[in-house]
């Protein structure tokens, strides 16, 4: 018995030192004025008041940019990855090759892919605008205009849907063929197959990817840090970037902890809502047997 605890000790200690401990400490910090230069003092709810008042005008801005990004990018990513997975699940040759190619962008470090995209999205010299020009299509300022910066980052995000796509593909391959055959016998066509078999059977996987997508999407940071520095005009000031700036550039540790907790609550609420509504749209095989 002691051996068991001993073997699991790294994970147990790790959980208390690097997860639970910091979580609680972070919560306590929200009631202080810690700025790294002054002795710490408890100030009650002042941080929360400052946060909700939004006196710097940036907190609510960061919320709105983050929500815009998440609501554009998560559904698009899932839809896109699902469509690609559907295509790859057809009776085709070279599936392994396609899978490798579609996954490749996902393994590129974000600090490097951001460099590539800054170059590609350059309004004058960039590849994208030049291709659009050649095709006679309108060009864009991409990340250099406050209207298009978030859609640009969403577009860039579509380049790295590899994980989602592979999880979908694995799910699709697990759907037993006899279901499709049965529907064929009943005279169903391809659309029926998609709507009555594929989508319902894939709903747990869609659900899983949706949760992962939201948790990840709310925490977008590196792209903004590297490509836009939150700009232009704070229009890509995502909440984690705002938090980072407050904590590590302005040393407002306590206030930043309050922002972190707020983000934590948002993600918690989102996950909770998705879980709750999942009963309505997620189909679990074998549930009827319970």
């Amino acid at each position: 018995m002691w051996m068991g605890i001993l073997f699991a000790l790294p994970a147990i200690l790790g959980f208390f030192i690097f997860t639970l401990g910091p979580m609680l400490a972070s919560f306590v910090l929200t009631f202080t004025d810690l700025k790294l230069i002054n002795p710490i003092k408890f100030i009650g709810l002042d941080n929360y008041v400052q946060l909700f008042r939004g006196s710097d005008g940036l907190f609510y801005k960061s919320l709105s940019t983050t929500f815009q990004y998440v609501f554009m990018s998560v559904p698009l990513n899932i839809l896109f990855a699902f469509c690609v997975a559907l295509l790859m699940n057809q009776q085709i040759k070279g599936r392994a090759f396609f899978r490798t190619v579609f996954y490749l962008p996902t393994i590129v470090p974000v600090f490097a892919s951001s460099m590539i995209w800054i170059w590609i999205l350059d309004p004058d010299l960039g590849l994208l605008n030049n291709v659009l020009k050649t095709l006679g299509l309108p060009t864009s300022m991409w990340i250099y205009s406050s209207e298009t910066v978030i859609p640009s980052l969403v577009l860039m995000g579509l380049w790295v849907t590899g994980n989602t796509m592979i999880i979908f593909l694995a799910g699709l391959q697990g759907i037993p063929n006899h279901l499709y055959e049965a529907l064929e016998v009943d005279g169903g066509n391809k659309l029926h197959k998609l709507l009555y078999i594929t989508v319902p059977l894939m709903s747990p996987t869609i659900f899983f990817n949706l949760v992962l997508g939201f948790v990840g999407g709310f925490q977008i940071f590196a792209e903004a840090y590297i490509m836009t520095q939150g700009g232009p005009n704070n229009s890509s000031l995502f909440i984690v970037f705002y938090l980072y700036r407050e904590a590590f550039q302005l040393s407002n540790m306590a206030y930043a902890s309050t922002v972190a907790w707020f983000l934590f609550i948002i993600i918690l609420v989102f996950t909770f809502v998705i879980f709750k509504t999942s009963r309505m749209w997620v189909y679990y095989e074998g549930e009827g047997n319970k």
């Binding site: 997860t19 940071f221 540790m253 983000l263």
Partner: peptide, 11 residues
Amino acid sequence: MLPGAATLIPT
């Protein structure tokens, strides 16, 4: 499920 940002500052 915990966002990394939540434990960042105390860590």
